[in-house]
Amino acid sequence: MAEQTQSPRGSKPIVQSVARWLAPQRNRIIVLAVLAVVAMVLPLAANNYMLEVLSNAWFYVVLCLGLNIVVGYAGLLDLGYAAFFAVGAYTTGILTSQFGVNFWLTIPVAVVCSMAAGIIIGGPTLRLRSDYLAIVTLGFGEIVRICARNLEITGGAGGLIGIERPHLFGLHLNQAIHFYYVFLALAVLACFCSYRLQHSRLGRAWQYVREDEDAAEAMGINRVGAKLYAYVIGAVFGGVAGCFFAAKMTAISPETFMFQQSVLILVGVVLGGMGKIPGVIIGAFALVLFPEVFREIGSMRMLVFAVVMLVIILYRPEGIWPAKRS
């Protein structure tokens, strides 16, 4: 990133500093526009396999951005994020396949359910320091999965099948290309929300709490409240992503929401760079594309992936995307 705020901007001559400020900004808009065009046009040239992989990548972008609010912005280690994703997926799955509710109406229900799940788990645990929180969230993630496997309404170990695919303005969303655009739109929405939240009163509160909990508290910020807020918003991202996941797959099973899933999402966030939207997007893409690109080497690819992860953690602990500030 071009903008390194090592020296005070004000001390440079104004014209020069404005020029320096404008150039990367304009560059950034150009880069964004190019990326948007590529993202829009790409599916026209892609085969079904590529579409599937790319939709999956956008889907992980949404999940990673959701977890990024918890881990990156508020600095909470959450090892059970897949639980919220599961809550959303099962809400949609149960309501559409068993009660015949229209898919779009299940989204607000899923939002409420994931918020409730966030409050139930976050309320008592967010007072804990991060290591304890990690263990509790890990347990919570497993509880949700095991419940899903044993309850009748969730279809037990076999999961739910026959989830109806939604209609959008008369168009039946049943092709890979449709879901590519659905997940692209979701990812853009997630970016937009993340960006706005990051640059708001709430986003600042998260950063204060992350930097110095006591000082933040002394400045009148409710430490636990701010964390809970992040946790619940992160849960909503996961829940909504889960709704669309269920609709795309038409079938869900508890094994989709295993601990590995939570870890995978967390890896995406850490790999790209916590708290940085472009970084998290890159992380999510790396997560999905890497195993696909190295499919030929079979299960060895996970080993290579692990080595890449280690190298990044050792040499770039701040993630792939550079830190904005020194």
Partner: peptide, 28 residues
């Protein structure tokens, strides 16, 4: 006990947190 990696203005803005009220939805 400053918020070290944040700007001076952002640091001072922390004080106004308890005198303001905007939530997530209005921020989005």
């Amino acid at each position: 006990r400053l918020f070290k990696s944040m700007t001076v203005l952002e640091n001072v803005m922390s004080g106004m947190h308890c005198r303001s009220s905007a939530g997530a939805l209005s921020a989005i």
